[in-house]
Amino acid sequence: MSIRSFLLSSPIFLGVFLFQEAFVTQMRLPAGGINLLLVIALIWSALSTPEIGALTGFGAGIGMDLSQTSPGPMGHWTLVLIIACYAVAFLGYGDDNIRGNPINIVLLTTIGVVASQTVFLVLGLMLGQQIGSIGNIIFLLAGSAFWTAIISPLLLKVVSYLHANIFGSRAQL
């Protein structure tokens, strides 16, 4: 892992963060919509080594914590994403059955999004936040899974291309 590669990927995540905050949140998509930064961070991690996955989670998590819509303390999303991105990268690392198959990456990302939100929720409860009705939570989690499963295949090609160009050595999907 090189610092240069990590720094090169920073503008991409900054751009995604700006796009998410300025455009995606305006769309008012049904069923809670989608968080592009979360999805792209997980796809990026699925293509990376566990160390880069954890660093990606850290960077993306800081971005999500800086978002005005984040209800928790600074570091809440960061902690969740370090764990989630590391876990996703760890599961896929060295296993070409997962890494080389786009369907498996989409599945891994979708499960990762739902798991991240669930962990975020549990951490929020531990930090004393209100979470609302169970029905609404299940609806939002299902909505997130739906939107991630729809958007991930569309993003995968672009993210894979950018990842291959920055880290060089990996085969592009």
Partner: peptide, 15 residues
């Protein structure tokens, strides 16, 4: 209203 907060964080906000 210039933005509606994402429900990903289980909050309901607008800007």
């Amino acid at each position: 209203v210039i933005s509606q907060g994402s429900s990903t964080s289980f909050t309901q906000t607008i800007t």
